[in-house]
């Protein structure tokens, strides 16, 4: 396959970036999208140019490192996958592919396609935990039965990989899907109920402080989420938040 890549190049956070065009040849359908970029980079290095920098690590769709806005969509045209799981068979010979970083005020660009997502960490630090000591002096794991449906729903929310596609997909750059997934995971479990009030208030406050936008219920986040995190989580967080606000 022969392709034309238009890639965002930006030296660092303080300089302006621009789209640069790179023709590429010899791409096979069995390559992953990132392996295609590896081929590009190998060529650039051999020509004495600086390779394109992008975040990636596990390359199996679970670490949440890889990002990339591909032809305007976070993680590209396929569904329920991350960029590292996107395969070139989704494209055809002669295609032009535009590759940009995730765009959001709360995700500033560090270099080329790499963005700073530490705002997500700070939202979690504000309350995304259960305050139990890790000494092992807890009750037996089976002492509190957990309804299977709740446990499964909690798990589904907890499968969020924190990649930021929800923010990149949202016209308001809102982090509601991400934050609500964590709030939901704990809200659905008996162990998480004790701190539920403070948790939702603190996490939402931090989310606002980081500069994420508001939610206007367009649902783009759910469609682009590589893990299929459901909008129901946002509804649940709104209920939790309302309840917590009334309680004060």
């Amino acid at each position: 396959m022969k392709l034309t890549l238009k890639i965002w190049r930006q030296k660092n956070a303080n300089t302006k970036g621009e789209l640069k065009t790179y023709p590429i040849d010899g791409i096979e359908g069995d390559m992953s999208f990132l392996e295609m970029l590896d081929v590009l980079n190998e060529g650039l290095i051999n020509k004495g140019e600086e390779p394109v920098v992008f975040d990636h690590d596990c390359r199996e769709g679970i670490c949440g490192s890889c990002s990339l806005q591909i032809n305007g969509e976070p993680h590209g045209p396929d569904r329920l996958i991350t960029t590292c799981q996107l395969h070139m068979r989704m494209f055809k010979d002669g295609d032009t592919i535009v590759i940009e970083p995730f765009r959001a005020t709360a995700f500033p660009v560090i270099k080329d396609l790499v963005v700073d997502r530490s705002s997500f960490d700070r939202i979690q630090q504000a309350g995304g935990f259960i305050s139990v000591n890790t000494s092992g002096n807890t009750i037996d794991a089976n002492a509190i039965p957990v309804n299977k449906h709740d446990a499964d729903e909690s798990f589904n929310a907890a499968t969020c990989i924190g990649c930021g596609a929800c923010v990149a997909a949202c016209k308001n750059a809102s982090a509601m899907l991400f934050t609500s997934a964590k709030v939901s995971q704990f809200a659905l479990l008996p162990q998480g109920k004790t701190e539920a009030t403070e948790r939702v208030l603190n996490m939402v406050a931090q989310m606002d402080k980081e500069g994420f936008g508001n939610c206007s219920n367009t649902g783009a986040c759910e469609i682009e989420c590589p893990k299929g995190i459901s909008l129901e989580n946002i509804a649940r967080m709104n209920r939790e938040y309302l309840g917590a606000s009334i309680k004060g």
Partner: peptide
């Protein structure tokens, strides 16, 4: 025990 107390959603 520890992980369940921390809210790890095991099957």
């Amino acid at each position: 025990d520890q992980c369940v107390a921390q809210g790890v959603p095991f099957a």
